[in-house]
């Protein structure tokens, strides 16, 4: 165990005292990973905060706030390199707002019911498990092919699926895409919904969905995903602070500072690793978080009782 010096800080919304260094380190570690893998890191921050005894409702809402900083930082780079499809991002966003609103309503309802923690954990276990599993299978396959000397390609041009036969087509020039807006709006709404309930940007679902379902070129995927995440996370933050008062700015700020610094070092390490190696590592990480959360769900808790503020 590393001895962390104790410098307490009182979180005004969470109403508890926490160690500044633990939060900075947490933000830094997640920032490092997000810089390395090009993801927002929300899917790591929220579970980590819950493991650190921050109430899940606050962890989710604050996680969304933290995601804005890292996504904005990342999107700026892609905007400069022109690897960002603003039109595609905007359509995704339109769906995202609808999804985020529905998600916030579901969040408040589940919280009243006392099942918020359960649903948050279940969603994490399911999505992290599925995405991690798929990524691991895909990247191991790619690593094998790379070893045997075959070309590695994610996108197989010319190959079309059912999504490309839907009506209401729209042209997205930057992505060299001519596709129906229905799956784009639907995907945006779905990610928005998850963003509200799970406190994530949704990059870990958005990126594979854009690549595999919509066949968006890999180079514009991350920038576009980050672009829409900024707005969905901002919207989620505002909704949560209006409806539930669960955004803790002090907590979010500490995580952001650690995260922004960590991301820079992560990005440098990431450049030295190969794509499929990165994906395999990220898959393992995602699966580890899923397992840890599943463990809490299935193992008898220290106490089966819990207290919360009652409403008469």
């Amino acid at each position: 165990m590393i001895r962390v010096p104790r410098v307490g800080i009182y979180l005004p919304i969470a109403e508890m005292s926490v160690n500044v260094f633990v939060l900075l380190a947490m933000g830094g570690a997640v920032g490092f990973l997000s810089g390395m893998f090009g993801v927002g890191g929300g899917f790591l921050i929220t579970p980590l905060l819950i493991f650190y005894n921050i109430p899940p409702a606050i962890a989710v809402a604050t996680g969304a706030n933290q995601v804005i900083a890292s996504s904005f930082s990342g999107a700026l780079v892609h905007f400069k390199r022109k690897t960002l499809d603003v039109k595609l991002g905007t359509v995704l966003l339109a769906g995202g707002f609808v999804g985020a609103t529905l998600g916030a309503l579901a969040f408040a309802y589940l919280r009243r019911l006392g099942q918020l923690d359960l649903i948050v954990s279940l969603l994490y276990v399911t999505f992290l498990g599925v995405v991690g599993g798929l990524m691991l299978t895909e990247s191991i396959g790619a690593l094998r092919r790379a070893r045997s000397g075959q070309a590695v390609s994610l996108r197989k041009p010319g190959q079309h699926n059912w999504i490309h036969r839907l009506p209401l087509k729209m042209r997205f020039r930057a992505s060299k895409l001519f596709v129906s807006v229905i799956p784009v709006l639907g995907l945006g709404a779905f990610i928005g919904f998850l963003s509200s309930i799970m406190g994530v940007g949704g990059g870990f679902i958005m990126v594979p969905a854009l690549i595999y379902l919509l066949k968006v070129p890999t180079n514009v995927v991350i920038g576009t995903s980050l672009f829409q995440i900024i707005f969905v996370a901002a919207y989620t933050t505002i909704i949560h602070s209006t409806a539930n008062q669960t955004v803790d700015v002090v907590l979010a700020f500490l995580l952001m500072v650690g995260g922004v610094a960590g991301a820079q070092y992560g990005a440098r390490v990431g450049q030295r690793l190969r794509g499929e190696q990165l994906r395999a590592l990220l898959a393992l990480l995602v699966l580890a978080v899923a397992l840890r959360l599943a463990f809490d769900l299935f193992v008898r808790p220290a106490s089966v009782y819990s207290l919360s503020a009652g409403v008469l």
């Binding site: 919304i13 930082s73 700026l76 949560h240 602070s241 952001m256 500072v257 922004v260």
Partner: peptide, 24 residues
């Protein structure tokens, strides 16, 4: 946060954007 949730939320978003930008 309790009384002006909307302004608080907008401020939280601005802080995040500024932090991200400064980090850059």
């Amino acid at each position: 946060a309790q009384q002006h949730g909307l302004i608080y939320g907008i401020a939280a978003v601005l802080i995040a954007i500024i932090t991200g930008w400064i980090g850059r």
